[in-house]
Design a protein around this nucleic acid. Structure first.
Lengths: 259, 259
DNA sequence: GCAATAGTGTCTTTTAGACAGTATCAG
DNA sequence: CTGATACTGTCTAAAAGACACTATTGC
């Protein structure tokens, strides 16, 4: 406890380390569901390196900008302000992952509802949809395909980032409320099951799925029903608002436990 | 596809962005089990800021050093080379988390066997053990206590980092092989159950635990038995070596899925 | 009425908890 | 023998899968 000087005096004298620093970026895995498949929104690179390949939208982190704020800003800038559920995924820091310079990137998962997905496409026409194909077992890698079926090769280590995003989503889907980030405010149980099946890449047992979801206590029936169907309309549910959460912070926005 | 110049020419001309960059560090949650409780190894800060508080060992990431390598180096430098299972946790990037300057820190979980824990304490006497108390429900925060029971306040946002480490460990414990990182090569089923109970903070049903672990197919019975007991000796097991893994990369060392 | 999908009832299978029992050591 | 702990058998309870059944819409 031999602190002769005050904290203020120390801070005034403190000389920021002047070693060379890596650049820090955030990259967004913009993910929605399109045609029953998980689908990314990618930017085609027209410059070196990896010109012609497709990349995750990203940007550098400002010196006075929190990581989460940088992710939100990149979402605004690159996806035309479409709303998305943002969640930090993992930080990639291999030395040669970008040949231009040392860039450490913090990958974020950005989940888009169908409406937000369409809005992003409309406001940011440069974004190219790429359907993600991943085996249901999902230990490993993924492939991405354009609308016409052509393979979309990803730039840098972005295929690895996307593979991790899918693994994480699958891992949290059943025990967390993250799946609701892909649905509108009102949804039917069938839509919820469709989301789970699309992410997992497998079919699910209908009665068991309904029982599980209803027993979780996450759902509030609205008493309203879908319209415009030519068959029996399904009841509309909404995600129950859990208390002890700020309006801007819902429970599926906390850092992963499982993972 | 209008690329007149070669990639090499482009790279030679590339001017690294010269905006101010945050510093990037790694911090280690050095965690072992001591007296049946999860226990951290901490460094007492003798300088501003947060002088007198206890902090996670950490260090800056070198410009030519991968993140995982930086974590391994800090482990060597600060824990006297004790072996540990290293796994990236989360990246903390609030602007004011360090009053000296903007530091983004990538937190790593470093799990120590009992032997490695003792070795680290012997070779790095500055490391102070702090027992972690976390409610079994574990939504939230943790407290850390010295051997004499006094509370150890943590510096910076390190309490938040430790809380996340415990949540993640608890989340992965049952479905991953991460728990074995806290055990020696040969161990009894009771030791394995003790590890799970210490991490979860709850008691577990013995027959069900044995069934689950044996049904997982992770364990290889050795036919050998513990010695020196005054009661019936238990059989020793070892973690089954799964194929398709390099010797230095076992299955519980891959990025988290659950979380 | 038919076609299509929503939603439920129930049987079976699997998995976990509870708890008592036997087995094997030191002394 | 006792005491302590390893290990197992078995009953019960809870959860999940399978599958058929009823309900409600448009036409």
């Amino acid at each position: 406890m031999s602190q002769a000087e005050s904290e203020a005096a120390f801070l005034a004298r403190y000389d920021p380390a002047d070693y060379a620093r890596p650049a820090v970026a955030v990259d967004l895995v913009l993910l929605g569901l399109s045609g029953g498949r998980p689908t990314l929104l990618l930017l085609k690179r027209d410059r070196h390196p990896h010109a012609g390949r497709h990349a995750l939208p990203g940007g550098f982190v400002g010196i006075d900008e929190a990581l989460d704020d940088a992710a939100a800003r990149v979402l605004r800038e690159k996806a035309g302000g479409a709303r998305a559920h943002l969640e930090q995924l993992y930080t990639f820091g291999a030395v040669e992952r970008d040949p231009r310079m040392r860039i450490i990137t913090v990958a974020y998962l950005a989940l888009l509802t169908e409406a937000a997905f369409a809005e992003a496409r409309a406001r940011a026409p440069a974004l190219i949809p790429g359907a993600v194909a991943a085996s249901p077992a999902a230990e490993g890698s993924v492939t991405v395909h354009a609308a016409d079926g052509a393979a979309l090769p990803l730039a840098f280590d972005h295929a690895e980032i996307v593979a991790l995003a899918i693994r994480r989503l699958r891992g949290k889907l059943d025990y967390s409320e993250v799946g609701f980030a892909l649905l509108p405010e009102l949804f039917t149980l069938r839509q919820l099951q469709d989301v789970h099946e699309a992410i997992l890449g497998t079919g699910l047992n209908k009665p068991a799925f309904r029982r599980r979801m209803l027993d979780r206590g996450w759902l509030d029936p609205t008493g309203r029903f879908e319209t415009g169907t030519s068959y029996r309309p399904a009841e509309l549910y909404r995600l129950r608002q859990t208390s002890s959460q700020t309006p801007s912070q819902t429970s599926w926005q906390t850092p992963a436990q499982g993972d």
